[in-house]
């Protein structure tokens, strides 16, 4: 059962991620990324992180991508032009780097010893909340300063100068 759900999540997630990165219309990009982020949320749920699955849908699909959609509509961005033809040396260098990264990645993945999964720990809101106001209280308070700084920064950046 879990295997079937996992396969569906992986296939849908990868296909929608490819569409999100390759389609030329910005609206299709954003809406397709919403599907990918739902698949990531489903993966969190499969891994036993229920709180993160809910937070992922609320924060990413509910807030961040709506912001993206707003900006796409606001800017009325035209569809992207086709990229320029790469120069031959760019092709060669790119191919070499991709090969290196691929071989390195495969080597690392083969080398990793898969230990038996540890006992399932429940990632519900109560357990996460205890950690947040316990050992991570300083980071938790500091993140509000970061969010405030981002809020003020965004307002300053888009303010029209008179």
């Amino acid at each position: 059962m879990a295997a079937a759900v996992f396969l569906v999540v992986v296939v849908v997630g990868i296909v929608s991620a490819v569409v999100a990165m390759s389609h030329r219309s910005p609206v299709v990009n954003v809406l397709s990324l919403v599907v990918t982020l739902f698949c990531v949320a489903a993966s969190y749920a499969l891994l036993g992180a229920e709180f993160l699955a809910a937070a992922q849908i609320l924060i990413y699909a509910g807030a961040i991508l709506v912001l993206f959609l707003f900006v796409v509509m606001l800017l009325n961005a035209p569809e992207e032009q086709r990229p320029k033809e790469p120069r031959p040396f760019q092709r060669a260098v790119g191919l070499l780097l991709a090969l290196l990264a691929g071989v390195g990645g495969v080597a690392v993945l083969i080398g990793i010893e898969v230990v038996a999964p540890a006992a399932r720990v429940s990632g519900d809101a109560r357990a996460i909340g205890r950690l947040l106001v316990g050992p991570y209280i300083f980071a938790f308070e500091f993140i509000s300063v970061v969010l405030l700084a981002a809020l003020v920064g965004a307002l300053v950046l888009v303010k029209r100068k008179h």
Partner: peptide, 26 residues
């Protein structure tokens, strides 16, 4: 569970990053 707390913080920083990035784009 520590990894899940880190991911929670990464989500908050990502929200801040998107707000500033989109403001820059505008």
């Amino acid at each position: 569970l520590d990894a899940q707390v880190f991911v929670f913080f990464v989500m908050a920083v990502a929200a801040a990053e998107v707000a500033v990035g989109l403001a820059l784009l505008v």
